[in-house]
């Protein structure tokens, strides 16, 4: 099968892969295709495959400099996912924001009256299940952002515990400062380490004065994007670094 055919097949199966191309130095034009958790293919330097996992976790194309070669690494894979637990109004607004980004949205709630198509028409997937079951089904990975929205301890707590046990790159929880404090105490009592709690953005979202559901969703999605890029989320005018997320200099291996 041709390389293009293989890349198309990877896309159809929803797999992730990195395509390495030597662009300068020994063996210009040679390629290596490394599929996540799977095979390696091509005539490029085989040692490049060692870098695939880290590149996939960062989810961004980048240039590597290795043994006098410059190598371009291109990421293939499905778009990131936003998994919302709590089929409240903000969940639908979050799905719309996710759609705008081309991301996949999944909404789950134990309450069948909440998790309906009428209420959440935009979700790519709707699940009626308690948190443990829903999280087991969705299996959040390093390309998944989790947002917990129920405002109800009996759902929020197990949902956050499940999120913390996953590799989700972002975990957000709505709720007032007072509720966050109370929740913090309860999670600590449930055995969660202090450092683990730092993974939770709560109250989630950037400080942009959001009020309506759509504004709140935008503020949360903006925070998710900033987390993914390792940025603080302030005004670009005040940003000390480059506007775009790519590294300015090639990363040396």
């Amino acid at each position: 099968m041709s390389l293009v055919g293989k890349l198309v097949a990877i896309g159809e199966r929803g797999e992730r892969a990195v395509l390495f191309t030597v662009i300068e130095g020994d063996g210009v034009g040679r390629k290596l295709l490394a599929v996540e958790g799977g095979g390696v293919d091509g005539d490029g330097p085989p040692e490049l495959a060692e870098h695939a996992d880290e590149i996939l976790r960062r989810g961004r194309n980048r240039l590597l400099e290795l043994d006098g070669r410059r190598v371009f690494a291109e990421v293939y894979g499905p778009p990131p996912r936003i998994f919302v637990y709590g089929a409240v109004d903000t969940a639908e607004a979050l799905c719309r924001s996710a759609q705008l980004l081309g991301w996949t949205s999944i909404v789950a709630d134990a309450r069948a009256k909440f998790a309906t198509r009428e209420r959440i028409p935009t979700a790519d997937e709707l699940i009626v299940a308690w948190p443990q079951e829903a999280f087991a089904q969705v299996a959040p990975d390093h390309q998944t952002a989790v947002v917990v929205l129920t405002h109800d301890d009996k759902f929020d707590e197990p949902a956050l515990l499940a999120a913390l046990a996953s590799e989700a790159f972002y975990i957000g929880a709505l709720g007032s400062r007072r509720n966050q404090e109370r929740r913090r105490g309860r999670l600590l009592a449930a055995g969660v380490a202090e450092a683990q709690l730092e993974r939770i953005s709560g109250p989630c979202g950037l400080d942009i004065g959001a009020d309506s559901q759509a504004e709140t969703a935008l503020s949360i999605v903006a925070e998710i994007l900033a987390a993914r890029a390792g940025r603080g989320g302030g005004p670009l005018r005040q940003a000390p670094h480059r506007i775009h997320v790519e590294v300015e200099e090639p990363v040396r291996g």
Binding site: I23, N61, L63, F72, V75, H244, V245, E246
Partner: peptide
């Protein structure tokens, strides 16, 4: 495959 300073389209 690389951009320096400002660029209209991202790497990739």
């Amino acid at each position: 495959v690389a951009t320096r300073r400002s660029a209209p389209r991202p790497v990739g």
